[in-house]
Nucleic acid binder design. Structure first.
Lengths: 236, 236
DNA sequence: CGACCATTTGATATGGATCAAGCGATGTGG
DNA sequence: CCACATCGCTTGATCCATATCAAATGGTCG
């Protein structure tokens, strides 16, 4: 039951805080749902680049910023005291992460692939929120969404391996742009640590689903949903 | 892997919405941490009584109210399509539940024991929050706490049975008033459905912990922590 | 006392973990 | 440009923790 994923030695080191990485002014973001919060972030934030597997923020660090993925993807995670890693979630372009209500982050965040992230001071946002209820409500909606996501994660973790993998694929498909072809930014280990399974079980389950003609796996990072109904049946 | 807990047939039926149960004016609440939100609830809310196992609100119902436990205890849960039940959390006196940010509840809530609950319209709270940033911030703190709790639940579900039970006991001990003697309001089935285990595994684990002199179980609902260090060691 | 329900205990089955190889893509140095 | 190391993934064999099935025990209430 113990020891998965030994703590990863990062390729690049702690860029956070300062503007060590290229802080460019303000990119043209993909059309974001004209909500007040996203708007403000775009106006007030700075973009930072993170190399694959580099840390964006660490657990126990002061939660000074709010982040929005511009390109690439991000994982949040926690290392248990025995070395196991639990991935809390994956954030794709447009997603906001780093929402915390304590003063410290409760999870760490790393770039899954090279990533550009819009960063904005929490204090700026909360100041805005105090003046403008629309912003405050935007924060609530976001938080509610995050809470819902986490509740769904709980449900995921009580399912069978097949159900977990099927749910994961359907979730990724619904988030990705393309209908039924998924380009996975994350490794099997990332998926395993998100689903609470081992890498072997994830792999086996995928080949099983492929044999059952529910999916196709042309390359290990690309998955085509062939029989959505079959997957949904596993989605419980 | 399938079918735990067949959907429970409640002893009493849907009191919610109306004031069918005794809506008394306004009880003297146990000293609550003078925060603005709790204050307002006390002033504006009405108390309702719910019989053991009766539903307080159901998943998919409009989330019109916010709730605060006065006495007794409450569980939130979700029934999966195959009949399994996942308990999301337990709420003890002083705890606030029913926090949702969508228009509908995503979980159901039931009284674990006979319970009195302070009920307040969500609209009343949000109206307050729009005018008073202190209230808005209070809501954030609550939500943040709930999010944290749910994240911890995720971590719980990837642990071994021993670890889950030990964590559960420590959590309950920290929430209850008494130092190391816990009076459990909920059944083994409730615990099992919260921990993602079977009732048999919970029971066996408890007797195992008792044999290991970590706890004592004088009656099935009362548990005394004998060796907190040993339990903490299991807490990962 | 007897019925009922919650809990514990026992015997067995099984899904997923663990241990161990193999395999294909990618990159590196000779 | 090709051997060769490396890395991420898959596949195979075995083991073990927990589920499942079944029965005994104990507490509660009429």
């Amino acid at each position: 039951m113990l020891a998965a994923t030994p703590v990863r030695t990062d390729t690049s080191r702690r860029p956070a805080q300062a503007s060590r990485h290229g802080v460019v002014g303000n990119p043209n973001l993909d059309a974001c749902q004209g909500d007040a919060l996203a708007q403000s972030m775009r106006l007030m934030g700075a973009t930072m680049s993170f190399a694959r597997n580099s840390e964006i923020f660490g657990e126990r660090e002061p939660a000074e910023y709010l982040y929005r993925v511009i390109s690439g993807s991000v994982r949040s995670y926690k290392i248990l005291s025995d070395g196991r890693r639990q991935v809390g979630g994956f954030y794709l372009p447009g997603d906001i992460f780093g929402l915390e209500f304590a003063d410290e982050h409760t999870l760490s965040a790393e770039a899954v692939t090279d990533a550009k992230v819009l960063v904005i001071r929490r204090s700026a946002i909360t100041a805005l929120a105090d003046r403008d209820p629309a912003i405050a409500r935007g924060l609530f909606v976001l938080t509610g969404r995050e809470l819902k996501r986490t509740q769904d994660h709980v449900l995921l973790l009580v399912k069978s391996a097949q159900e977990r993998v099927a749910s994961f694929l359907l979730e990724m498909a619904s988030r990705g742009s393309s209908a039924s072809s998924i380009e996975l930014p994350m490794s099997r280990q990332d998926i395993a640590d998100y689903l609470g399974l081992t890498i072997e079980t994830v792999s086996r389950t995928l080949t099983h689903l492929e044999n059952a003609a529910a999916i196709e796996v042309p390359t290990s990072r690309r998955i085509v949903l062939r029989d959505r109904a079959a997957l949904s049946r596993l989605n419980v």
